[in-house]
């Protein structure tokens, strides 16, 4: 049985309450840079997209990848290199990051889907660690220093991205595009087959689906979207370093998704916001962040496996019966 099974029987279509909620959220996102520090917001958007990409795999196919940092951090390196060394336009650089991550996803996914469950997690972890070792030694990543001082440049040669709000709205646009892509994937016939594989892989096979191809397809899409997030992050923060490719980052994205709610559309966004805000808050204190992340992991796994959004949805599902 897959991780997300019990609380994800069907994915509802956009209904009026969802549309209202979406409109309010969008308005808040557009207005946000006037009230909050834009870099902080952009950091949340990048990680939220990363977590949503990861959730596409665990929430809708039931595959736990422990190596998504390779796609996120790898794309950051590709984008940073293209923009800084080759002088590419920033959006083209970000696209290259996503394409590069998709290519990596094809290779890693091809190997990892040969095993299931717990082995899948270990294989993705091992292969991403291998990629981290390569990044440590390859000349273009500049080892421990990383690629520093990546210029933000001008979007399509027109808009100066050094202006924080311009950068913010580009990040927001990419985030919304990624989210829309995920929503389309999940609610397509392809997405339904993915969910069928999650619920009962053998049955999907017996129905004649080539399960491996669907899994690989989902893996590549998830990697590409994680790469989109990573490439954008490289432009926002103007650097790419080893931190983004290491296993701790893979752990962090798992935590964001688990905390917010595996298999829910907005859970990973909530989780990413909380984790980033927490890290920001703790950065000035003495308390070690790693320990806190570990504690949240343990609490989530033991007490609320549905995550924050998942638990709320579950409550809303139960309440009408109680009041009626």
């Amino acid at each position: 049985m897959a991780v997300g099974t019990q609380y994800l029987a069907e994915q509802p279509r956009l209904r009026t309450p969802s549309l209202v909620f979406g409109a309010i959220a969008l308005a808040a996102l557009v207005a946000a840079p006037f009230f909050f520090y834009p870099v902080f917001l952009m950091s949340i958007l990048c990680f939220a997209l990363f977590a949503c990409a990861f959730n596409l795999l665990i929430g809708y196919v039931g595959l736990l990848s422990f190596g998504h940092a390779a796609f996120f951090g790898g794309a950051a390196y590709f984008t940073a290199h293209a923009v800084k060394v080759w002088g590419w336009e920033p959006l083209a650089g970000i696209l290259l990051g996503a394409v590069g991550a998709a290519a990596m996803g094809l290779v890693i996914g091809f190997l990892a889907i040969r095993r299931q469950g717990i082995y899948f997690a270990m294989i993705t972890l091992a292969l991403s660690q291998m990629f981290a070792f390569i990044c440590l030694q390859a000349p273009f990543t500049h080892g421990e220093d990383g690629i520093q001082g990546v210029p933000r440049g001008h979007l399509l040669g027109l808009v100066d991205l050094n202006e924080p709000r311009a950068m913010y709205y580009l990040t927001l646009a990419i985030f919304l595009f990624g989210l829309f892509a995920i929503w389309r994937i999940v609610n397509s016939p392809f997405g339904n087959i993915l969910k069928a594989i999650r619920e009962n892989e053998r049955r999907a096979v017996s129905l004649g689906y080539r399960v491996d191809r669907y899994k690989l397809g989902a893996f590549v899409m998830s990697a590409a979207l994680a790469g989109l997030a990573g490439g954008t992050k490289a432009i926002v923060f103007q650097f790419a370093t080893l931190t983004d490719v290491q296993w701790q980052m893979s752990g962090e994205v798992i935590l964001m998704t688990l905390l917010g709610g595996i298999g829910t559309m907005i859970g990973p966004i909530v989780g990413a916001g909380l984790v980033i805000a927490l890290q920001n808050y703790l950065a000035s204190s003495q308390f070690p962040v790693t320990v806190l992340i570990g504690i949240i992991f343990v609490i989530c796994v033991l007490l609320f496996r549905r995550g924050i959004v998942g638990e709320i949805l579950e409550l809303m599902k139960r309440r009408p019966k109680g009041t009626a």
Binding site: G294, I295, L302
Partner: peptide, 10 residues
């Protein structure tokens, strides 16, 4: 796996 990962981090 996730629980023991969290413990390892702690």
């Amino acid at each position: 796996l996730l629980l023991t990962f969290g413990l390892a981090l702690i």
